[in-house]
Design a protein around this nucleic acid. Structure first.
Lengths: 198, 198
DNA sequence: TGCAAATATTACAAATAACGTATAATTTTA
DNA sequence: TAAAATTATACGTTATTTGTAATATTTGCA
């Protein structure tokens, strides 16, 4: 699964775009081939059917965002920058997998999809969790911070940040994110230096 | 075509939403019925087929935005407000008919669609054109302004206003629109009062 | 209440679209 | 140029969608 063929990559990308936009069911194999400038035969050379392509798309999205996440976490940056970037990455990540795609892909009680997603999600989750633990040991978070709590809260924050009213209070999304980052970093007290870094 | 039934309206609205999102081909009649809480029989009572529903959707969108346009044009407002609102209405109008919908609906060399759209468009256009002429007589535009030129320019402006770079120069879309409105109203010279109102 | 009109349900034949495969022709690439 | 990869075309098989009919059920109204 490491190095992928040109055609294979083209199919994967086109599938991603189309699935993202229209969901799983509404997109046909022939359409993907057309958009990817690929023949149907080549499609079937690399993927047994549409479902397997969709799984590959899902996996690639998850892998990609995990890689992005890790790159930030392991970068040589001051903690406040790191946290800002993590938060922004999460925001972008919201748009990586569309409602339409997941609705078709997960919602329908079709074969094995639920299992596939849950497995992949759990793998990714445990990787992320370990990364967070190491980050805590390295001083990105204070030692007595409950990581599960933090992850839950920062997850919820994505929803909050997308709230229309809240956004209307700021002239740009960046400002709102910055506000949240500061809240997370420094709390509400007027301190000059980070409180949560050990 | 004046007063429409509850169910009929529901089908029209649902069709509009789904077509807008996914285009014409990707949406099925049964899906529309499901979303509209309507039976297939009722669908066929009001529309002979999907195509006629789509035409009705298209017409309703066009009629609606024309009505909106006229309401602004005939309102009792100072010229600068009128022009600002016209510009904003145009911006919103950009989103009324989606790429996907028109691509399926117009692009495919299917039966009669091109004709239908072109006819409707021309009707609307000539109505709008007459409205503009009357507005010019009433003093909203200066007498020596070429209306075709104005309409063309303000059409182009929509594209310009949606340019990402240009938007990045302003903290909100409103500000950018205001800038353009002022440019259109007052030109670039530092005058205190409108120049283009007769 | 009771009776039309409107709507829903179910089932179905016909048409259409999508899938997946075989074969032969063509293009790439080494 | 020879081998590998890709395309083009065609085709049988399913699956889906359409449009209709016959039969309940609900709704609005006198």
């Amino acid at each position: 699964m490491r190095k992928l063929n040109k055609k294979q990559a083209s199919l994967l990308n086109t599938g991603r775009q189309l699935f993202w936009k229209y969901g799983f069911k509404r997109v046909t194999i022939e359409e993907i081939c057309r958009e990817a400038n690929t023949s149907k035969m080549t499609f079937y050379k690399y993927f047994p059917n549409k479902l397997e392509l969709a799984k590959a798309v899902f996996d690639s999205v998850v892998d990609e965002s995990l890689a992005h996440f890790q790159k930030i976490l392991h970068a040589d940056l001051p903690p406040s920058d790191k946290m800002k970037q993590l938060l922004m990455a999460k925001m972008e990540g919201t748009h990586d997998i569309s409602k339409e795609f997941l609705a078709d892909f997960y919602g329908d009680a079709e074969l094995g999809l639920k299992d596939h997603i849950e497995q992949k999600t759990q793998e990714t989750w445990s990787t992320m969790r370990k990364d967070f633990e190491r980050a805590q040991e390295n001083g990105l978070f204070r030692k007595d911070l409950n990581l599960d709590f933090y992850i839950y809260v920062s997850q919820k924050m994505i929803e909050i940040i997308n709230d229309p009213y809240l956004n209307s209070l700021y002239s740009s999304a960046d400002q709102l994110i910055m506000e949240f980052t500061n809240l997370l970093l420094y709390g509400v007290s007027p301190h000059k230096y980070p409180l949560c870094v050990a």
